[in-house]
Simulated assay, not measured.
Amino acid sequence: MNKQTRGKQLVFASLVPIVILLGMCFTPLYTLMTGKEIILQTIPVDPSDLFRGDYVTLRYEAEEVPKELVEAEVLDELKDGRGEIKVYVTLVKKNGIDTPVKVSLVKPEAGTLYLKGTLDYIGDNRDQKEVAFIQYSLDKYFVEDNTGTDWEAASTKGKILAKVKVKNGYAILTGIKKSK
């Protein structure tokens, strides 16, 4: 093997990790640039970790979808004991808040606003209503220093609205604001 071939191999080997890292950044950046902004209502959370600096732990109404909105195919998958199930949650704006209207295994048609999530299980929520518990990985938001306590107080009352950018079901939390 000559020096020129080894040089090309070294350059190629050095570029592979860079290409992989750039590929990992593509979906979040594409979502931030071209995604549609939605608003999600939070629900009360009792924070449990005080050692991570100023951040707000968030839960959303959209994470507790009434069982009636879950399609039969999803329920059948759940009965088969397959554990976590990848689902698509279709959203419709109601009173300025994007709200789930259907949980499906099938990706919604183009132009429909939806989130990709993981359905963990179906059980009773804090209001004793049967709901599907779905995760979207939008649970923490870091805030300015010395403001975390105020945000946590608002969070425990469910008085925060979350601004989220969504593209093809992929969601990124971009901001929070206090609701009335």
Rank of each mutant, 00 (worst) to 15 (best):
N2S: 05
T118I: 07
T5Y: 01
I172F: 10
Q4M: 11
G96H: 06
K129F: 05
E73W: 01
T57Q: 09
K180Y: 00
I97Q: 01
Y121R: 05
T57R: 02
N125V: 09
E73G: 01
M33P: 00
K107S: 07
G7S: 15
I85Q: 06
R52H: 11
G35A: 05
Y141A: 15
Q4G: 03
G35W: 09
G148C: 10
V16Y: 03
Y121H: 00
G23L: 15
E109D: 12
E68H: 04
G53C: 08
T118V: 08
K163R: 09
Y141S: 13
G117V: 03
T27M: 12
G96R: 00
T27C: 14
M33H: 08
L173P: 11
E77S: 02
L29I: 09
G123P: 04
F142A: 12
G53S: 11
V89S: 06
K177I: 13
I38N: 03
F26S: 14
K107A: 13
S137C: 04
I85A: 07
K8L: 04
I122V: 15
I160L: 03
M1S: 02
S104R: 06
G117Q: 05
V89D: 05
K177Y: 07
D127S: 08
K159Q: 11
S48H: 10
E68I: 03
Y60D: 14
V101T: 00
D127V: 03
Y170N: 14
I134H: 02
K3E: 15
V65A: 10
Y55M: 07
Q9W: 01
G7E: 11
K93S: 02
P17W: 10
K79Q: 02
E61P: 13
E109V: 09
V131T: 07
Y170V: 13
V56H: 09
A132L: 12
D145C: 09
Q128T: 12
K93Q: 07
T90F: 03
G83I: 07
E64Y: 14
K86H: 04
V143E: 01
M33C: 11
